[in-house]
Design a protein around this nucleic acid. Sequence first.
DNA 1: CGTTTAGAGC
Length: 554
Amino acid sequence: MKIDFKSLLYHLSKPNQTHSRTRILHGLIITTRLSSDPFYATRILRFYAINNDLISARQLFDKTPQRNIFLWNSIIRAYAQAHKFREAFSLFKRLLTSETQPDNFTFACVARACADKFDADALRVVHGKVLAFGLELDFICNSAFVSCYSSLGLFDEAGFVFHGIDEPDLVLCNAMIAGYGKCGDWAKGTQLFNSMQKMGIRPDGYTMVGLINGLIDNGSINIGETIHGFCVKSGLSLNDHVGSVLVSMYSRFKKMEFACKVFDSLLEPDLVSWSSLISGFSHSKDHLKALGYFRKFLNVSGRRADPVLLATVLAASGQSAILLPGLEIHSYAIRHKLDSEVSVSSALIDMYAKCGFLEMGIKVFDKMPEKNLISYNTVISSLGLYGRGPEAFRVFDEVLREGLKPDEATFVGLLCACCHSGLVNEGRRYFKMMKMEFGIKPKTEHYVHMVKLLGMDGKLEEAYDLVRSLPEPVWPGVWGALLSCCDFRKDYELVEVVKRHLMENETKNDGYGVMISNLFARDGRWDDVEQWRVDDGGVKGKTPGVSWINGVNY
DNA sequence: CGTTTAGAGC
């Protein structure tokens, strides 16, 4: 009987292929001695790779005597995508000494592996090899290099590669636009977007995704709406990445009506779209809606949550400070064997701590099979929140013992712990250590904690000096912290000094305006209240400023 | 056969 393998392979390439069907086909190919044909071997190898069966893939590779470049690339890619870099690189080295010549796809794949491994040196070595093989003008290689250099933050080198090509194609432009997006060079991104159209290249979904991602951190929502309009006008499908990145764009700008609208237009929202929407609600402080959409996700989408989504909804339940949803999500995580994922465990610790059950969080922490800096940071902040400074310090010592390098968030947690435990000297010590030993530049949050720490201890002058030493513009929350300390220590002279300073140097702002007007309101000084009122939120003359009640976020 | 590709946690 003659078997038509071409059509068999065609059927296999369609979605919903099971691992066992691949095995059956593999067996058929072996018995008919077709396995010596690298074409069939490559196809089967790729199906194994899709099913994460690297062992069968490798066996197939080893048993195929005639290896062409397609087969080599497929096995290298299989290892690289599974983040088994050692195997991928050693195969790459073997390929270089074999009779088969690597091609542009080989180098693109290996470059991508370097980027995934965050190995800039290796990436440059591979780039050198590309030049040695005379592929310096190859589009596929260079697209990969533009993207890889950008993802490692080496934007100059990415730009250098890109500008070395006279007439870039769509993919190259997309890679460069995504690169500009990552480094926040919004102007260059839009410029390239315009000039590629002048060159007659039609933007596609990737273009828009790269562009919008650049916009999310640096642009304004107005431009976002323009881009949305462009997508609709040019008929780009909103069902794939574009739709989901639009949902995330609106979510990040807290325009949830629009995010919902786009989301509802998706035919089959995937896990990412759901996560974007839910995290949007969470970031807009609408935690109950975030949890409600998670329930809807479980009921209607027919999908399983992944660690990322679980971390998002756990953060939402923590911030709503209601224990029950958090408990149920914990049990969902246990049922689906996701509770020992580092991201989920860290989110669980945070959730329990915020809901008032620190001990439960610590239990999760103690049971974690592997910990990373984020889990340590979470437990340090949680202990700090409860005023259990000395315990937080011990966890910090553990971080150092483990050889981990503390980051900004570690010190936010430590300073917070000092603050809540009233440990001024320790706070000063950690603040200094952060700057001197770890070279971390203090940010607003660090200053807020230092100001509170000094101020609550009565060292108001020192706190005031610290605030004045900050570069402009000083975040209003720092002034708010100082004022609340003045109030606590009943130092109304300093309140007046700060007030004068703010009137001379700053514009009225909710961050401290509310604080000052509240202070005056309590003492019945309604004229002063009136002066500091930020918005007309209530009964005129008798209301101390606005707060989140009126929807003002600060 | 293949290159570019979003989302979370401190």
